[in-house]
Design a protein around this nucleic acid. Sequence first.
RNA 1: GCGCUUGUAGCUCAGUUGGAUAGAGCAACCGCCUUCUAAGCGGUCGGUCGGGGGUUCGAAUCCCUCCAGGCGCGCCA
Length: 559
Amino acid sequence: MNFVENIRRHITGAIGAALEAARNTGEINFEHLPTVALEVPREKQHGDFATNVAMTMAKQARMNPRQLAEKIVAHIDRGDWLKDVQIAGPGFINFTLHHHWLYPVLPAVQQTDDRYGASQAGAGKRVQVEFVSANPTGLLHMGNARGAALGDTLANLLRLAGFDVTKEFYINDAGNQIENFAKSLEARYLQLLGQDVPFPEEGYHGEDVAETMRGLIAKDGDKYVPMETTLRRELLVKYALQEKLSGIRESLARFGVDYDIWFSEQSLHDSGAIRETLETLRANGYIYENEGALWFKATSLGEEKDEVLVRSNGIPTYFAADIAYHKNKFDRGFDWVINIWGADHHGHVSRIKNAVKAVGYNSENLDVILMQLVRLFKGGEIVRMSKRTGQYITLDELVEEVGKDAARFFFVMRGADSHLDFDLDLAKSQSSENPVYYVQYAHARICSILRTAKDAGYEVPSVDGVDYSVLDHPAELSLIRKIADLPDEIARAATQMEPHRMARYAMDLAALFHSFYTHCRVLTDEKALRDARLVLVDDSRIVLRNVLSSMGLTAPERM
RNA sequence: GCGCUUGUAGCUCAGUUGGAUAGAGCAACCGCCUUCUAAGCGGUCGGUCGGGGGUUCGAAUCCCUCCAGGCGCGCCA
């Protein structure tokens, strides 16, 4: 049950009825009922909800907005929940409600507990979230970490909002980079065994490549040395991919991220899926041949240029595989497909959307979230990162240095499209400057109150016999109001793909709780007040914990 | 050159899809611990929403145009 949604319906209903009534008496003329937009005013003095219908309708009704608003207000049925209706500014109608509209949320949080905040907004629609999908040729870096935190949190939120969610990692285990990887592995392998062979110029210079080969030598010794190079590379790559992938999987698991499906690009080659996809494209008229290569007629869908699907050497491009992959996603019946990509891939967005169209699916059901890159700061200086030279901070090192909770919070705190400056010192600092601790501290503080209460023989009362109307301090009402917002907030963050809203919500809620804490004493001798506040405090605990958990963070009971 | 994207307080960022006097955290300054965790609270200071035009009752938000940063424009992935 969503109380905010409920009251919104009441108000919009009352406005609609008032408009009809005014039309019946001939006071207002209009063709059709407009959709009534309700907003929550920034200023408290403007009431709990406000509408601008009088302004939007002014033209249609041929009346000035304030006059129109007066006519509407005269016909509003105040029921037993509406305390006051005011006309303000250019023609806003402001609604102030009796406090008691909020109170039912208090027992509801107790009853739904870890499900509080969930909703049916997604109506069981099947959504796939693909994120990280890092090359299995190296270690996870900061960009991957951001994608992991955002993708995992978004998936959690979608699930809470009533979607049927599948989390997926696309393994780029095919193509030129794998060739290149193989050459690098081979060179390192032979070098480690004392052979003087050159290292490929475009190869993977990272120390982890050598490390992988050291592991193989420890296991199998020099048995690959006498082999023919093609077979050798094949075996080395097979070993390395397996090792790298399980490393990636473990790093992500430590970061609190797991997947439902690990999808191999190579499998699209092996299964014939790419060939089938090309046939589909051909049947739909999007393919032609030129200079020995097979091309996708992207220009016919508004692109600037066409794209190669199969090179003249007969090997399909990454793009061809990606089309097959996206076709596969929709073939599997997902209603909504979300990709989280680095902003450096933004050029591919319209291309893949057109490709989705070309294979016969609705590209509106594909969303690509682009993440801006992460800049690392330490001691006020930018930490330079270069993948080519293997000089970069890995996800493992990040988790080691600042901890999982701080890292995830910092990534989720900002919108995906904002350039993220990650301050390692700040994330690590256990001070008031660090928002992670601010939020977690609120939770720990609550747990402390509840412990103290228990020691004094005060339990959180069962919800029935509690009189919530004693909770009328502004700090209490604001806190309850925030708690009541959670289901909407989650649904909105999920459907709009804006996980950073939850970090903000968490900070707002923590701030409201801290404020309540300093203004209102929980453990008083006055039983009625104490009981009501114990419920409010325990509700705050539940909501904080649920929000933290949606972001993959722990909710400490002591700090 | 073409395209995408960002530009909001000293710093890092929000901004409820076009609403009322543009917000938060940090930094700075001033207060508050004999009582449930001061990793906290209250207050002050801080703005040409990159610039300029336009659309309308109303613009940080939509359109145009400049300026600045980031990124993309391979038979790479």
